[in-house]
Simulated assay, not measured.
Amino acid sequence: MKKFLLLLHEDIEKMNELSPKEMGELANAHMAWATKLAESGHLISGEGLHEKGVLITGKECVIKDGPYLESKELIGGYYLLQANDLDTIVQFAKECPCHLWGGTTEIRAIMEMDQYEQ
């Protein structure tokens, strides 16, 4: 099976406006969705990400604290999934709970390094 990274882009302002009850509902929706993915054999892993991090850039390895760009979006989490094809992952991604509050999912195929070996 091929591996795919599903990145969850979330609107910072909308997330900050959620009530504690809505945050709980969102967390529960993610747990239920992850359970569905696991039961179908498509979930490898998934986690939420903190808003802030560290960026290391250039030859000089300059370290910057995040957030890194003026943006209304952040990557709030990820799921590492597996399937035979992209279309399967697209169908799962349409059900991702981050869409309930205006989020966006980005799907990136994981490169298979053996395709580059000669």
Rank of each mutant, 00 (worst) to 15 (best):
M1N: 06
M1D: 06
M1F: 04
K2H: 13
K2Y: 12
K2G: 03
K3Q: 15
F4K: 01
L6K: 12
L6R: 10
L8M: 14
L8W: 04
L8A: 08
H9W: 11
H9A: 11
E13D: 15
K14C: 11
M15P: 04
M15H: 14
N16Y: 06
E17H: 13
E17F: 09
L18K: 03
P20N: 14
E22V: 06
M23H: 06
E25H: 00
L26F: 09
A27P: 05
A27I: 13
A29S: 12
A29D: 08
M31A: 05
A32Q: 05
W33Y: 15
W33R: 08
A34W: 03
T35N: 01
T35K: 03
K36T: 07
L37D: 04
H42E: 02
L43C: 04
I44L: 03
I44W: 01
S45C: 09
S45E: 12
G46V: 04
G46R: 04
E47A: 11
L49W: 07
H50T: 07
E51T: 07
K52G: 10
G53F: 00
G53L: 01
G53N: 00
V54C: 12
E60Q: 15
E60F: 10
E60P: 07
C61S: 13
C61F: 10
C61E: 13
C61A: 14
I63P: 03
K64D: 01
D65G: 03
P67C: 06
Y68G: 08
E70M: 03
K72Y: 09
K72F: 10
E73S: 04
L74W: 11
L74M: 13
L74K: 11
I75P: 00
I75A: 01
G77V: 07
Y78D: 08
L80M: 15
Q82L: 09
A83T: 06
N84L: 11
N84R: 10
I89W: 00
V90H: 09
V90T: 12
V90S: 09
F92M: 06
K94T: 10
K94F: 12
K94S: 11
E95P: 05
C98L: 15
C98Q: 14
W101C: 07
G103L: 05
T105N: 13
E106S: 14
I107M: 00
A109V: 13
A109P: 15
M111D: 08
M113Y: 10
M113E: 10
Q115A: 02
Y116G: 01
Y116Q: 00
